[in-house]
Simulated scan of single mutants.
Amino acid sequence: MKDWVVGKVVNLKHWNEYLFTLIINASIKHFIAGQFTKLGMIIDGKRVFRAYSYVNSPDDSNLEFYLINVKNGKLSSCLHSLKIGEEIMVRERASGFFVLDSIPDCKNLWMLATGTAIGPYLSILRHSIGLNRFQNIVLVHAVRFFKDLSYLSNMFFLQKKLNNLKIQTIVSREKCSGSLMGRIPNLILEGTLESKVNISLNSQDSHVMLCGNPYMIQSTRVLLENTRGMKRNLKNSPGNITTEQYW
């Protein structure tokens, strides 16, 4: 099949009953940290595929994907059932502009994610190229339950490696030590998020990357536009809000 290569599952990790990580070996074209590709399988005689962000650094020999088994999801349930040694189709070329090269220079870079959308940020941070032009990088991971913070230990590892990285977790459905409780837009509106990390979020020296739930992206973008004077970062019109939506 043109533009697709066959990959093999070399490792996997089931974090809980619905979150899992696939490690795949496949001969793909080089990608840029922050980009996504498509994974596919033949299901009932038809090729079914979905877009997923790379979690691994472009320098890694294997490909890493952080996934959720969606209820009644045609592809995700099959991906969830894969075993080491089984094959999967991978799009040969990556897509997307959710990369550091598209981010203007600024003092504070905010990386806001919900759920499995933490993936592209981990790829960028693991690659670590180009991060020193930001004085502060704030990685915010919002989930429903503490058990959904699958990559928390890896995030803390990256924080030790990168002097300008700050981490803040948000859990919406239970109280957890060290985590804020609530949702990203509300915590920005109330000033709670900025107060917790002790960094200002404004249009003068901040850039916000948004990846995850479409409602979070839309509501946060509108909030930042209306209350912080920010605008979308477009190819021909630089701004301070960069978004990624591929579903």
Rank of each mutant, 00 (worst) to 15 (best):
G182V: 09
I188E: 04
L193A: 14
L158K: 06
E190D: 15
L165P: 10
L152T: 03
G191F: 10
S172E: 10
S150Y: 15
I188N: 01
I167Q: 02
D148R: 07
D148M: 04
N163T: 06
M181S: 13
K161A: 04
L149T: 11
R144H: 14
N186D: 15
I167N: 01
L165M: 13
V143Y: 13
Q159W: 00
N164A: 04
K196Q: 15
V171N: 13
L152A: 01
L180C: 05
N154C: 08
A142N: 02
G191Q: 11
D148G: 06
Q168V: 04
K196D: 14
F156W: 06
K161D: 00
K175C: 05
E190K: 09
C176F: 08
G178W: 14
F157H: 03
V171T: 15
F145N: 11
L187V: 02
E174A: 03
S177E: 13
S177Q: 08
K175R: 11
K196I: 09
S179I: 08
C176K: 09
L152D: 02
F145L: 13
K175Y: 11
D148S: 06
K160L: 07
G178K: 12
R144D: 07
Q168F: 00
L187I: 02
S179C: 15
V143M: 12
L149N: 10
K196R: 15
T169H: 03
Y151L: 10
Q159K: 14
N154Y: 11
F145K: 13
S172A: 10
S195P: 01
K175I: 10
K147E: 15
C176M: 13
I188D: 05
K166G: 01
E194D: 05
V143F: 12
L152F: 04
K175D: 11
L193C: 13
K166H: 13
L162N: 05
K166C: 04
G182P: 12
L149R: 09
M181P: 00
S177C: 02
N163S: 12
L149S: 11
R173E: 10
C176H: 11
V171Y: 14
K161M: 09
L193N: 15
S150G: 15
Y151F: 15
E174P: 07
L152C: 02
G191H: 11
N186L: 09
